[in-house]
């Protein structure tokens, strides 16, 4: 076990992938000499060369489209999108090409491309630097979407994503980059928990609280705070956003009968909607109350002095937990 930051854990996982497979190529803006704006690729170009760690021109569609061509040639590109809000110029290549190529060619052409996206807010940035665009991609068939919440998963899952023959969107919670944790670098990818599996990170019996990425830490803190009030919250880290691990979700909800989902992204058409609808379909008779969503608002990501109103924090999550439990909460007395 080694103590390391979240960013260093990803760096270490990337290094391992570069060492293990000569076909792995990193591409992105400023990922070479600078080591990326968050230093996630620090030192990799120096050690693996400019052909393995490629500084690209400033064109996101260009990066993604050339990654498709490299995959055609048998490479395993790992693309860094510098910030969440910069991914949209690449949207067409991701949705129309990366996601559909395997289907289009009846399995002849694989797209083992990993798209790393630092996402989410809480870092006081200007516009376009704090978004949570994951639902655009979970809605797109052909893509796998994951989000990591701790250094160990970051280390393991980046390698699992790169090893996947399907394209993977890998969402990194940028406000947790400097969080430290223990990482076992000897982990065996074959026996490690599959990246498609959710994980129960705090066991509880009264409410199931579902989170992913940056809000897993907030959700765990909320669960801890809830114990003071005698409420036992089970926290699930989704890890995989597409596909969702309904086996783990259902088992928890069947036990607790109550469901709260939280994410930074806006509410409409978000992951919370999918989890709530699917869980309602799958275990309606085990639910004691309507599922509750605690999410960002349906607004453009706000200017930084207001972002803490937008981001679900510990108290807002606990308010949602109260609502699921039928306890007095901020919406008491309101219909619907």
């Amino acid at each position: 076990m080694t103590q390391m930051t979240f960013a260093r854990a990803i760096n270490s996982g990337l290094r391992k992938s570069l060492e293990n497979d000569p076909k792995v190529v990193l591409m992105g803006e400023d990922i070479g000499a600078l080591g990326g704006v968050f230093r996630v690729t620090d030192g990799l170009q120096k050690d693996f060369g400019k052909h393995r760690v490629v500084d690209t021109p400033l064109a996101e569609s260009g990066i993604m489209g050339t990654a498709v061509g490299l995959a055609y040639r048998g490479y395993r590109p790992v693309v860094e999108i510098q910030f969440d809000g910069f991914i949209y110029p690449a949207f067409d290549q991701i949705v129309s090409q990366v996601a559909k190529m395997h289907y289009r060619t009846q399995g002849a052409v694989k797209m083992p491309i990993t798209i790393r996206v630092p996402f989410g807010g809480g870092i006081g940035s200007p516009e376009h630097h704090s978004e949570s665009p994951e639902a655009y991609f979970t809605h797109t068939s052909g893509l796998r979407v994951v989000s990591v919440s701790n250094p160990q998963d970051a280390y393991t899952m980046i390698q699992q994503a790169i090893a996947s023959d399907d394209p993977v969107l890998y969402f990194e919670p940028k406000r947790r980059y400097h969080d430290k944790g223990e990482v076992d670098e000897t982990v065996d990818l074959r026996t490690a928990l599959s990246m498609e599996k959710a994980r129960v990170v705090t066991e509880g019996k009264d409410v199931t609280l579902v989170a992913y990425g940056p809000l897993v830490k907030t959700a765990r803190d909320a669960a801890l705070a809830a114990t003071d009030e005698g409420v036992s919250v089970e926290v699930i880290d989704l890890r995989s956003l597409a596909p969702l691990d309904f086996v783990t979700l259902e088992a928890s909800v069947r036990k607790t009968g109550r469901l709260v989902i939280t994410h930074e992204a806006g509410q409409s058409g978000g992951l919370g909607a999918e989890v709530a609808a699917s869980i309602t379909e799958r275990c309606f008779y085990h639910l004691e109350a309507a599922p509750v969503r605690v999410t960002g608002f349906d607004v453009p990501y706000p200017y930084s002095k207001l972002e803490m109103h937008h981001l679900p924090g510990l108290d807002r999550i606990l308010d949602g937990v109260d609502r699921a439990l039928g306890r007095p909460n901020s919406l008491s007395g309101l219909e619907g």
Partner: peptide, 26 residues
């Protein structure tokens, strides 16, 4: 595509120019 070294025909206008360039980088 690999039996004839021709990618399947692209319908999104111009998207394949990037695929060719990436392939060439490979």
């Amino acid at each position: 595509p690999f039996t004839v070294n021709v990618a399947t025909q692209q319908i999104i206008i111009g998207a394949q120019s990037l695929h060719a360039t990436g392939y060439a980088m490979g």
